[in-house]
Simulated assay, not measured.
Amino acid sequence: MGLESFTRNDPIFADESVLRDNYRPTELIERDAELSAYQSALRPVINGAPPKNIFIYGQTGVGKTLATRLVSDRLLEDQRQYDDLEIKIVSLNCKSVNSSYQIAVNLVNTFREPSDYIPSTGYPPSRIYQMLWDHLNALGASHLLVILDEIDSIGTNDDILYELPRANDNEHVDDTYIGVIGISNDFTFRDNLSARVKDSLCDEELHFPPYDANNLRHILERRAEKAFREGVLEEGVIPLCAARAANESGSARMALQLLYKAGDLARQRDAVSVCEAFVDEARQLLEEGKIKDELARLPVHSKVTLRALTNLHKAGETPVKRRDIYALYLKLCDEIGSDPVTDRTIHDRISQLRQKGFVEADERNDGISGGSYYLYDLRIIPEMVDEALDLQ
């Protein structure tokens, strides 16, 4: 049987793009209170006053980034009616950077032509910041808002979160008011900031809570009107997707992925409708994909540690003590030509693997003679680890 023709005769989807991650909706439903608070926090800007520094909290998929885009777009549109305002907004996703220095470099390059970009290393920090202040002074804008999405990616290297909010007070930037909007999935990130950054950055904090099942059902219903052909969704599909996502994460992204995958499965099977069975299958496939992605992103020595435990599991030698995992870890490091780390470091790596749900531990106590210790075993199927880490 050869290839079939590509056609636009899709019996399930009318416009599947509205369920995809890269879709850019023009509204954010079930977030009226958060949008109102966001606009209130930015009101000093439209009044020509110095902006507040805003910190946005909330887990993945609860509308933080979309809200920021919608509110920013509205602010830029509404400023046109005021002659004394010229608001500029610069947005940077910090996921690909890991330090204040790298953020400063990226901000400098935002104001330059590609042919004049500065490299990511080689300059002293003071020189990078002076370049940034020179660009900001040359803007000629009344306000500059710097949006730093996934700001927790920079860890404890938080100098940029002091320098930017204090740029006016420290007389680095004269005629342009500078404001910072930080967006984070990590609720503990602020606790780890230095005292001077806490004082400078967080004038206003906004929290985006997880969506509940009713919220998610309304979101899915609105998207489904555009995404699916009339009558193909069985009655229980959207409520089931909403309930699954609400129970596991409260993420609209997860709910949309689940609905889209269920529809895609129906299309693959030449089904005439999307039923609840496709939702259950989609959930399992998405969970497996998420685990494989997490496995693939593990640091090298975490991968080797997990490989050691997986091999012990396959040989029927689990549960095992940490020393047995470490002994095999050392052999595997020798096989791949990698310098091993200490037993204590591997203890930390195993703890991280436990937190991710890949490893389980059973505490034992042999009394005075043996003391307390843990026995470890693999918590996910070894075939999944084999596929993700290319184990043999």
Score class of each variant (00 low, 15 high):
15 D>L: 08
15 D>Y: 15
15 D>M: 07
18 V>M: 12
20 R>W: 05
23 Y>Q: 10
25 P>S: 15
25 P>Y: 08
28 L>H: 02
29 I>A: 07
30 E>F: 05
30 E>A: 13
31 R>E: 03
34 E>P: 00
35 L>D: 00
36 S>N: 14
39 Q>A: 09
40 S>P: 01
42 L>G: 05
42 L>R: 01
44 P>H: 05
44 P>I: 12
46 I>D: 03
48 G>S: 04
48 G>Q: 05
48 G>P: 06
51 P>R: 09
52 K>D: 00
52 K>E: 00
55 F>H: 11
55 F>E: 13
56 I>P: 04
57 Y>P: 01
60 T>S: 12
63 G>C: 05
64 K>A: 04
66 L>V: 15
66 L>M: 11
66 L>C: 08
67 A>S: 15
68 T>G: 02
68 T>A: 12
73 D>E: 15
76 L>V: 14
76 L>E: 06
76 L>D: 07
77 E>V: 13
77 E>W: 02
80 R>D: 10
80 R>N: 10
81 Q>P: 02
85 L>F: 06
86 E>R: 14
86 E>W: 03
87 I>N: 03
87 I>V: 15
88 K>P: 00
89 I>R: 04
89 I>E: 03
92 L>H: 06
92 L>W: 00
92 L>K: 08
93 N>S: 15
93 N>F: 07
94 C>H: 13
95 K>V: 07
97 V>C: 07
97 V>T: 12
97 V>M: 11
98 N>A: 09
101 Y>M: 09
103 I>H: 06
103 I>Y: 08
105 V>K: 03
106 N>A: 13
107 L>I: 09
107 L>S: 08
107 L>N: 06
107 L>Q: 04
109 N>H: 04
110 T>D: 05
112 R>D: 09
113 E>D: 12
113 E>P: 00
113 E>Q: 12
115 S>D: 09
116 D>A: 14
